[in-house]
Amino acid sequence: MSLTRQEIEKVALLARLILTPEEVEEMTGQLGRVLEYMALLNEVDTEGVEPLAHAVEFANVFREDRVEKSLDREIALANAPHRDDECYLVPAVLGDV
């Protein structure tokens, strides 16, 4: 399975990354080789095998729906890179910027 530079750029957008031209070059080769190796799985017959997403197959865990103490707003905002008194701040989302 070889990858094209276009595919790498598309995946980078999906992953919300920006790659430099050198990184695109390097990843195209490296990820291509890793995917080639992963093609090894094609030799396994998985007809009728149920996927296993979790090694310990739990039933869902429920708790009573009651309000519990959560972090104070000030503490929750303490690590925010950009904030005002009560909110996280992001660049304008609507309109021309």
Binding site: M38, L41, N42, V44, T46, V49, E50, P51, L52, A53, A55
Partner: peptide, 13 residues
């Protein structure tokens, strides 16, 4: 890829 891997995961288990 992903679904195939989950199936092989069961076989490994």
């Amino acid at each position: 890829y992903y679904l195939k891997a989950l199936k092989v995961r069961r076989l490994i288990r």
